[in-house]
Computed example of a mutant assay.
Amino acid sequence: MDMMARLAGWQIRPPLIEHPPLPTCADADRLLVDRPGTRLKNLFLRDNYGRRHALLLTRPGKQVDLKALSRQQGWSRLGFASAERLQRYLGVAPGHVSVLALVNDVAQQVELWLDEELKDGDDFHCHPLRNTATVLLSRSDLLRFTGQTGHTPLWLPVPSF
């Protein structure tokens, strides 16, 4: 799928920055990739039974307390979803995850959780289904995108260690 063409069809035309593969935030740090905007860490989570899934966006350096987050959200023990689940629900491999992968969740099986600490952010860094580029998605474009995919963002205080 050409993610940029899909976004343009929804009147979303963010800047695109090409770069070497960046599967993790640490990789971007090592390469000293300097991009304006708000960097994100994307965590694909599942409940203990594998029945519920969430994509959590937070700050790159934040160490999320999954035990406290699962209690807060009323989910049975949260954990990281497998690469197989990531492919099945979001259509991407590990290292390529961003909010834009929700375009592949047509069955609406993944919840979108956004850390309240990001509320003042803008120009969010998002892989366009590949980790060799980053789009800078404005807050209004992020909301337009989630509206198009049918994913209502849940802003929440994300507990950390």
Score class of each variant (00 low, 15 high):
Arg30Pro: 04
Arg30Glu: 10
Leu32Val: 09
Leu32His: 14
Leu32Gly: 15
Val33Pro: 00
Val33Lys: 06
Arg35Leu: 13
Pro36Thr: 03
Gly37Tyr: 12
Gly37Leu: 10
Arg39Gly: 15
Leu40Cys: 10
Lys41His: 01
Lys41Ser: 02
Asn42Cys: 07
Leu43Trp: 06
Leu43Lys: 02
Phe44Gly: 03
Phe44Cys: 10
Leu45Met: 02
Arg46Asn: 09
Arg46Trp: 04
Arg46Ile: 11
Asp47Gln: 10
Asp47Arg: 06
Asn48Lys: 11
Tyr49Glu: 14
Gly50Val: 13
Gly50Cys: 10
Gly50Lys: 07
Ala54Trp: 01
Ala54Ile: 01
Leu55Ala: 00
Leu55Thr: 02
Leu56Thr: 06
Leu56Asp: 05
Leu56Val: 06
Leu57Trp: 12
Thr58Lys: 02
Thr58Arg: 00
Pro60Gln: 01
Pro60Arg: 09
Pro60Asp: 05
Pro60Cys: 09
Leu66Ile: 04
Lys67Gln: 14
Ala68His: 07
Leu69Phe: 00
Ser70Met: 04
Gln72Pro: 01
Gln73Ile: 14
Gln73Phe: 09
Gln73Asn: 03
Gln73Pro: 01
Gly74Arg: 10
Gly74Tyr: 11
Trp75Leu: 11
Ser76Arg: 12
Ser76Glu: 14
Arg77Cys: 09
Arg77Leu: 13
Arg77Pro: 02
Ala81Gly: 15
Ala81Ile: 13
Ala81Ser: 15
Ser82Leu: 03
Ser82Thr: 11
Ser82Cys: 06
Ala83Leu: 05
Ala83Asn: 08
Glu84Thr: 14
Glu84Ala: 15
Arg85Gln: 14
Tyr89Glu: 15
Tyr89Leu: 15
Tyr89Thr: 03
Leu90Glu: 07
Leu90Phe: 00
Gly91His: 02
Val92Met: 04
Val92Trp: 01
Val92Tyr: 01
Ala93Phe: 08
Pro94Cys: 04
Pro94Leu: 03
Val97Ala: 07
Ser98Thr: 02
Val99Gln: 03
Ala101Asn: 05
Ala101His: 04
Leu102Val: 13
Val103Cys: 11
Val103Pro: 00
Asp105Phe: 06
Asp105Leu: 04
Asp105Thr: 09
Ala107Lys: 07
Ala107Trp: 08
Ala107Phe: 08
Gln108Cys: 12
Glu111Ile: 07
Trp113Glu: 08
Asp115Ser: 09
Asp115Asn: 10
Glu116Trp: 12
Glu116Asp: 14
Glu117Thr: 07
Glu117Asn: 10
Lys119Thr: 12
Lys119Phe: 08
Asp120Pro: 14
Gly121Tyr: 15
Asp122Asn: 15
Asp122Gln: 11
Asp122Tyr: 09
Asp123Arg: 13
Asp123Met: 13
Asp123Thr: 06
Asp123Tyr: 14
Phe124Glu: 07
His125Met: 09
Cys126Tyr: 05
Cys126Met: 12
Pro128Asp: 13
Pro128Gly: 10
Leu129Ser: 07
Arg130Leu: 09
Arg130Ile: 13
Arg130Tyr: 11
Thr132Tyr: 03
Ala133Met: 07
Thr134Arg: 00
Val135Phe: 05
Val135Pro: 04
Val135Ile: 14
Leu137Trp: 06
Leu137Asn: 08
